[in-house]
């Protein structure tokens, strides 16, 4: 290899980016040519100098602590909330201009309006009553086996199975077929062997399960009539439950959010 060629390749040689043949040629040339070796040593020294100068700088410890603190308060980990490339802003602008955006916004408004209307009705008509022993047992069975039991809870399993995507829109019904119960859960009460679906409502988990043919022990539950539907409310260990039926089956919604909220959520579920 000539001196001109060696000098041309010297940076790539130092960066370890040359293929084997060129690398050997350069190192052979440097070994015999004084001028080129000097140049090589100079370049190497210069790099070392720049590196030494730069690595002197370390991040202050309070910055480290501040970042950790911020990560912690950052809240629930949400994949892909924003557009993938942080540089690309035009997407957002286009979204606001699109028709779809307005139709979605409109449906949300209508949904909210409906909710408030029902909510007002409910508030004026009924006051909560005491939950008796039967109710208590039933809800406990639901809670212990399906929703909030830490060892057998399906909530955790769903998250893992579905890679966190379950915790999305509150109004989307998740395909119950995708969810199966972990083994060894005793089915002590009607409904406990059924699939359940977990929603995220403002950070709280809400579990919906299908109770079967609709023959459920809800006679003693607090009853609320809204429109043409009857809802039964229960509470146990701080968890609220709303139970209702349609023509085919009965549903039970359980969560630790307030009763009113839970009822609103139940009414707005898009069930078939």
């Amino acid at each position: 290899m000539s001196c001109t060629e060696t000098v041309k390749h010297i940076h790539e040689f130092l960066d370890k980016e040359l293929d084997v043949a060129h690398r050997l040629a350069v190192s052979n040339h440097i070994a015999v040519c004084n001028d080129c070796r000097q140049k090589y040593e100079f370049e190497m020294g210069l790099r070392a100098l720049i590196k030494a100068h730069c690595v002197n700088t370390v991040a202050p410890t309070y910055l480290h602590d501040r970042i950790i603190k911020n990560l912690t308060s950052f809240g629930i980990y949400q994949p892909d909330v924003e557009e993938k490339q942080p540089v690309n802003k035009s997407k957002t602008i286009r979204l606001f201009a699109s028709r779809r955006f307005y139709s979605v916004a409109a449906s949300i408004l209508i949904l909210l309006g409906g909710g408030i209307f029902y909510y007002a009705n409910y508030q004026s008509g009924n006051t909560p009553s005491v939950v008796d022993a039967v109710v208590s047992n039933h809800v406990m069975a639901v809670n212990d086996n399906l929703v909030f039991n830490e060892t057998t809870s399906i909530v955790g399993d769903i998250n893992r199975k579905r890679n966190n995507s379950v915790m999305g829109n509150t109004s989307t019904l998740i395909d119950a077929e995708l969810i199966s119960l972990p083994g060894g859960v005793p089915a002590r009460q009607p409904g406990t062997g059924n699939h359940c679906v977990v929603f995220n409502k403002d950070g709280y988990k809400v579990s919906l399960q299908v109770l079967g043919d609709g023959n459920i022990p809800c006679r003693n539950l607090e009853k609320i009539v809204l429109g043409n539907k009857e809802y039964y409310l229960g509470n146990c260990k701080g968890f609220n439950a709303v139970i209702w039926k349609d023509e085919r089956q009965a549903y039970c919604l359980t969560s630790d959010i307030a009763k009113d909220e839970l009822l609103k959520f139940a009414m707005n579920l898009p069930l078939r």
């Binding site: 980990y77 830490e150 955790g156 709280y204 968890f239 969560s255």
Partner: peptide
């Protein structure tokens, strides 16, 4: 709602692990 921490416990632990790994 004294039990709410129990309900969110699993999600929180998942987040903790994720954060630790990160």
């Amino acid at each position: 709602m004294g039990v709410e921490s129990k309900g969110n416990g699993i999600q929180m632990r998942d987040d903790d692990n994720k954060q630790k790994e990160f």
